[in-house]
Design a protein around this nucleic acid. Sequence first.
DNA 1: TTTGAATTAGTAGCAGCTACTATAAAAAAC
DNA 2: GTTTTTTATAGTAGCTGCTACTAATTCAAA
Lengths: 189, 189
Amino acid sequence: MGAREKKEVRLAKLEKILQENPLHSDGELARRLGVSIQTVRLDRQQIGIPELRERARQVAVEHLKDTRTFTGEEIVGEVTYLIVGKEGTSQLRFTEAMLQSSSVARGHYLFAQANSLAVAIVDAPTAMTALSRVRNRRPVLLGEVVEAKAHIVKVVGARNIIRVVSRVGNEIVFSGKFYIIARDRLSRP
Amino acid sequence: MGAREKKEVRLAKLEKILQENPLHSDGELARRLGVSIQTVRLDRQQIGIPELRERARQVAVEHLKDTRTFTGEEIVGEVTYLIVGKEGTSQLRFTEAMLQSSSVARGHYLFAQANSLAVAIVDAPTAMTALSRVRNRRPVLLGEVVEAKAHIVKVVGARNIIRVVSRVGNEIVFSGKFYIIARDRLSRP
DNA sequence: TTTGAATTAGTAGCAGCTACTATAAAAAAC
DNA sequence: GTTTTTTATAGTAGCTGCTACTAATTCAAA
C-alpha cells in the first residue's frame, strides 16, 4: 500500500469522523488517526475543513437558524398568516440539513410542516392529531420554499377536520387531511 | 436612578441579548451595552454565563444531539430487525427533546419513525412516500419506548403498500398505511 | 540515485477568553 | 463629613486551539 492511498484513506476517515461529530480538536483527531497534529492540520486545510471553533460556531448558527424548524418551536416552518379557528399559511425553506439524509427527510418535513400548521390553527392547549391522510405529489428540491395553506373544513365537537395543501410556486407538492382533537388534558381514553 | 438599579437593568439586558443570540463576543456586548469589556466579563461571571466559545460549543452539542434524531440519520428510531422487501421493526424512546414543544412533536416523531421504517423496508435508492394514512391512537409519554412493526402488504410494480403498527408495550399508539414508490432517480412526473 | 510527496517538528502570532491586581469614582453606611 | 462598600474600568500574565510559516526527515516512486 503506497503512501498516496494511505493518505486518501486517512482523509476519508477524517471527513467521516467530523461528519459524525465535528466537535473534535486537532489533538483528538491526531490521536484517533494515529498521526501527528501537524498532519491533521495539513489534511484539514487540504479538504477545506475549518478549525474546531469555527465548526462549532457553524453548527451553532445552523441550530439557531433551524431550531425554529423542529426541536425548539411549536411550529415547523414559519407561520406567515394565521386566523385561529379558520385558516393559516406557513413557509418552509428546504435546507441541506433536511435533504442530507437522502430521500427520507422530505416526507417527514412536509408532514411536520402541515401537521404543525394544522395544530396551530386549532389552537387548543393540547391539540392532537388523531388521524391523517396525506399525499406527497412530488419531491422537494434543495432551496425550494414550500408554502403550506391550511383551512378548517369542519368542526364536530372537539374534532377538527383540516385540509392542508403545500405548494412550491403554484405547483402542489403535498396535500393532506388532518383530524385533530382538541383536548383539555393529556388523558388516555 | 442608583448604580444598583443600573447594574441590574444591564444584567437583564445582557441575558436577553444572549438568549436571543448567544454568539456575541464580550467586545460586541460591551459595545451594545455601552460599557467596558471588563464590566461585561464581570457581569457574565456574576450571572454564570460562560464565554462565547463555550456557548457556541453548548449550542452545537445540543444541535448534534437532537439532529441525530431527525436530520442526520436515515432512520428515525433504531431498527432492531429488518428483512428488506418483507418486514422490520424499530424502536424509539421519547426523550424530552421530542416532547418539549408541548403536544405537537409526538405526531411528527411517530410519523417519522413509521415512515422511515417503511422506506427502509423498501430499500430502493430513492424510495419515496407517495401517500399515507395514519392514525394516532393515544399520546406517547416521556420515556416511553415505541416499537414500530412494519410489513409489506402488497407490491404492484414500483408501488409498495406497507402497514405499520407502533406499540408501547402491547398497547397500540399509532398505526398507518404507507404507499411508497421505489424510483431510480428523482424526476418530476 | 535522485526527485518529490508526505510527515513531523517547531516557532511566532492571533482571538477570546480566565484569573488576577490595581485604581478611581460613586453610592451607601456610619 | 468621613469612612466603607459597591461599581466600573484598566492592565497584565497565561490559557486553548488554532493559522501561517520554516525546516527537517522519511519514504516511495521514477
